[in-house]
Design a protein around this nucleic acid. Structure first.
Lengths: 266, 266
DNA sequence: CGCAAATTTGACCTGTTTCAATTGAGGTGG
DNA sequence: CCACCTCAATTGAAACAGGTCAAATTTGCG
């Protein structure tokens, strides 16, 4: 799956259940992540307005979507793939401020220019909107604004957790926290799909296996560590049985409760 | 000034210039920071609605306003004094997620319970609102929601800067960044007051003197350092002429441009 | 003036980084 | 299908920034 994406991005076409006629040909009609994104709150009418200003966009793994400082003319919705947002210091030190997954929105924290860079980690499909047009839609769609506020509110709380992690946690605590973050994010996303009525193929997932789409360097830059420390800490966690590494991009967590205790410094 | 506050909170009564009759007796009428707060965007009518659900609240220096995990029944606007927001790890490690000054709003990043604790650093005056009532006002005041989104957006960008600081900057860079942050915040706040037509007493401020209302421990917990490192770094910066310490709570910055370079790792 | 709390300084220690190999995995071309 | 090549991940050894523990100053109040 991840293999295919890096060479032949084959995104699921996805079932279009009950969609209003007006939307039948809009890019939103087949949107896999509508229920999880900022669009979730909108009715067909409103969605149509958004659809009118949206265009699909495909980005290959590893390429840059925009750079910090570029004029922020577009907003994005991630519909497939994984993205990293990051900031750089003059000498090249990098801080990843977040990983984005399908359903995530890019463009909350911006002024006239992007305040971070965005790069595709896997092949990515985006829903792209002109900022000026989005603003117009926003002005006549209070529900959308409400929804954005709630999204921003969540991101803010997450950002604060990340500050605690970066400022006060040990390497071990950081890594474990990160895995739990990924696991919870995935659980929530699955739940949202189920709520939206999707039949998940293999109804029996392994709850405790987490995908790591990004490399060690990106993990390090997200956690304020070096790749070496990430790697060493992983083998250490593996040794004491807290996790298993199925391969470089899949971990099996050993007991979420006990991991949660590690993450909180207990 | 800081001295008086900690024992005898004497908050400025503040000139009420042109205020609509409806507001004459509202707590907002005399609000020192109306122009800088979320209220800035509201017309008299809307402000009146907010005023109706607001109550002034006074908190002594050092006391707790609420704790992480408490049911988040109230939102606040800081009208005087300085507050720190912080999170704790199980073993007592503390991360300060932000310092709040007059005009700042508390309550953007919350769910049903507060996701951080809040403590008064100096004597503080707050504008307190029941969350449920605020939500009602919000529902009929789109301009307020718009304003909140813009505030949240700014905070998000700031939070990302802080991640870069915590994850990738050296002690020296962290301290200098912090001073610049404080200086810029103060400049902005002064500018807002001037724009609002206030005559600032001493029209000639020393642009390069920055107040540090908080102690070394709080600075350390904000920057992901220890008090000792903060102290050592300060003397180091003092030694090489980058700053002067007038007293424990006042620094004079030596050349903002060169400090900005230090902060960015140049 | 005197005391408790905050800050600074000193000496030492440790987790993480740095620099340098080594091992391993994925993709390519013969 | 296998050998090869490259890039990612891991491991090792040495160095260091910042942390810890402890003591000396300084500050700010009562």
């Amino acid at each position: 799956m991840a293999k295919q994406q890096s060479k032949l991005p084959e995104f699921a076409p996805l079932a279009r259940d009950e969609i209003s006629p007006a939307l039948a040909n809009s890019p939103c009609a087949a949107c896999t992540v509508r229920q999880q994104s900022v669009c979730a709150s909108l009715d067909d009418n409103e969605l149509e307005r958004l659809a009118a200003i949206s265009r699909a966009m495909y980005v290959a793994a590893g390429s840059t979507i925009f750079n910090e400082g570029d004029p922020a003319d577009y907003l994005f919705n991630v519909t497939d793939g994984v993205i990293k947002l990051y900031k750089l210091l003059a000498d090249g030190r990098e801080q990843v401020t977040g990983f984005l997954f399908p359903g995530d929105f890019i463009g909350l924290a911006l002024k006239d220019s992007y305040s971070y860079s965005a790069e595709a980690i896997s092949a990515v499909r985006l829903c792209k909107m002109k900022r000026s047009q989005f603003r117009d839609v926003l002005a006549v769609t209070p529900r959308l604004e409400h929804r954005l506020l709630s999204v921003a509110s969540n991101e803010l709380a997450q950002a604060q957790d990340q500050m605690l992690l970066l400022g006060r946690k040990t390497a071990r605590e950081k890594i474990v926290s990160f895995f739990l973050q990924l696991a919870e994010r995935r659980d929530k996303s699955r739940q949202a799909q189920i709520n939206a009525g999707a039949e998940l193929e293999s109804s029996k997932f392994d709850e405790d296996v987490v995908e790591l789409p990004m490399g060690r360097a990106d993990i390090a830059d997200y956690l304020g560590l070096t790749t070496e420390t990430v790697s060493r800490t992983l083998t250490q966690l593996k040794t004491d049985g807290s996790i298993q590494l199925l391969d470089n991009h899949q971990v099996r967590l050993g007991g979420r409760e006990s991991l949660r205790e590690i993450a909180q410094g207990l």
